[in-house]
């Protein structure tokens, strides 16, 4: 689960960078950049959640 979280973090960043380079108009670029950021937050949540699960198992 932690690996999936980190992959989502990288994927979200890739979406932001691709939006910046590939989309010339401001509207779609902003929308995709925000979507990429949302994916990153999802990844961060997943990484945090996996840490919590590991801690519970450790106990």
């Amino acid at each position: 689960m932690k690996l999936a979280g980190f992959l989502l973090l990288v994927a979200g960043w890739a979406i932001v960078v691709c939006a910046l380079v590939l989309l010339p108009s401001a509207g779609p670029r902003t929308a995709f950049a925000l979507a990429g950021m949302a994916v990153e937050l999802l990844g961060l949540a997943l990484a945090v959640r996996s840490h919590l699960v590991l801690e519970a198992e450790g106990e």
Binding site: V10, G12, W13, E40
Partner: peptide, 19 residues
């Protein structure tokens, strides 16, 4: 577009620097 430039920098920190 300054806020988007800052957002891209923050996204890079979370999506590249952290992993």
């Amino acid at each position: 577009g300054q806020w988007l430039a800052q957002l891209v920098g923050m996204a890079t920190l979370l999506g590249f620097v952290l992993p």
